[in-house]
């Protein structure tokens, strides 16, 4: 580990699919309780990095450390039980189950599990829909369920993949409120998001990707003002 406060650390990550290089020598750290924003144009490798951090993708090269232990070879279910939770860009609810059951499979049963499930549903504003089948939910509620289900696993690091995408400003604001509560409980957050002004309300640090590399990493305001970032992302439109 580089510093005593870093809890999740990816070093020298390379990812190629055949001839296509998606990530190239990426170093990425998250401190305990830190909220890190990730921006970059489509195809820059943001979701790929998140998949590698969550364990659903094994990188071609590089290592992932969590709480000082090498977790590069651990699959996503193991990593989740260690404390790394994630949401999916396109929500993936368990459609045949109710909202309550969706979070319950993540918390486990019994009194403690029930309590945590209810608490997470209340926090995400879903408790009134607890007995609704998840495949009957609209986008807003699916996004909230993604978040609720990830929180139900009691994570130390929460990986969010465009959780605000496709939402109205008011809807996104509610989500920000929930995420801030989570942040207040000292859960570290990695948040990929295109809607920068939403992101800026939460994050402590901003990382910008372009073409598989980190091109800026630091204070959110500084990174936003960086000429390379403006060129790669905010000014340009490559998608």
């Amino acid at each position: 580990m580089q510093t005593s406060t870093s809890i999740l650390e990816a070093a020298g990550i390379g990812q190629r699919f055949g001839a296509l290089v998606v990530l190239d020598g990426v170093n990425f750290t998250v401190g305990a309780g830190e909220a890190v924003g990730v921006v970059g144009p489509n195809g820059a490798g943001k979701t790929t990095l998140l998949n590698i951090l969550a364990g659903s993708l094994r990188p071609t090269s590089g290592t992932v450390q969590f709480l000082g232990a090498d977790v590069t070879k651990l699959r996503s279910d193991r990593r989740c039980r260690l404390g790394i939770a994630r949401t999916f860009q396109v929500p993936r609810p368990f459609g045949g189950m109710t909202v309550f059951e969706n979070v319950l499979v993540a918390t486990g049963r019994g009194r403690a599990g029930y309590e945590r499930s209810v608490e997470v549903l209340e926090l995400s504003g879903l408790v009134e829909l607890a007995n609704r089948r998840a495949d009957n939910l609209g986008l807003m509620h699916r996004k909230r369920l993604e978040l609720a289900r990830a929180l139900a696993t009691d994570p130390q690091v929460l990986l969010l993949d465009e959780i605000g995408g496709g939402l109205t400003d008011a809807e996104a604001a509610e989500l920000v409120h929930t995420i801030k509560v989570v942040q207040g409980r000292n859960v570290a957050i990695v948040w990929i998001e295109h809607i920068v002004h939403v992101l800026m309300q939460v994050i402590d640090r901003l990382v910008c990707f372009d073409a598989g590399r980190v091109i800026a990493d630091g204070e959110p305001e500084t990174v936003i003002g960086d000429a390379a970032v403006i060129d790669a992302y905010l000014g340009g439109n490559r998608s």
């Binding site: 279910d77 989740c80 499979v105």
Partner: peptide
């Protein structure tokens, strides 16, 4: 049991099931 709920989650989405810690 808990296994039953886990199985239904796997049925609906295997990758998402693994992502919430289920031993698929």
């Amino acid at each position: 049991t808990r296994l039953g709920a886990s199985l239904q989650a796997i049925r609906d989405d295997e990758e998402a099931a693994a992502a919430v810690g289920i031993r698929v």
